[in-house]
């Protein structure tokens, strides 16, 4: 399975709230970041959590966000960032 996104691509995290076991933190949904690393393929945790085989595997990315974009009242440095590990099914082209 080839990765849909490459390092440097701008992506937006899907703003969805499905039930079940999800590894995408609430705070990052709907936000735009940049792919920092394409990690590789991993079993789908949303399936593994229910004792299934996790197939098809999902590509995992490390996506970097500017803290000022994520938090409206962020009062640290404008340089500050957060990197969140996200599976491909949660990403859309920005």
């Amino acid at each position: 399975m080839s990765a849909k996104y490459a390092v440097g691509d701008a992506v937006t995290v899907r703003q969805a709230y499905p039930p079940g076991h999800v590894r995408t933190p609430y705070f990052i949904r709907g936000h735009q970041g940049v792919v920092q690393e394409v990690v590789g393929n991993f079993a789908n945790p949303e399936e593994l959590a229910y004792g299934r085989d996790g197939k098809p595997a999902l590509t995992l990315y490390r996506v970097q966000f500017r803290q000022q974009d994520v938090w409206p009242y962020y009062d640290g440095s404008p340089k500050d960032t957060a990197i969140v590990d996200l599976y491909e099914n949660w990403l859309e082209p920005a």
Binding site: F42, P45, Y74, G76, K79, D80, T81, A82, I83, V84
Partner: peptide
């Protein structure tokens, strides 16, 4: 959400021109 405040409570203060980079270890790494 406020990494510099948390760092401050651990006694760690960083200048503004240093990027504080938070790694959220939520998946397989």
């Amino acid at each position: 959400r406020e990494p510099r405040r948390v760092l401050g409570e651990f006694g760690t203060t960083l200048p503004e021109d240093v990027e504080v980079r938070v790694h959220d270890s939520t998946a397989d790494l």
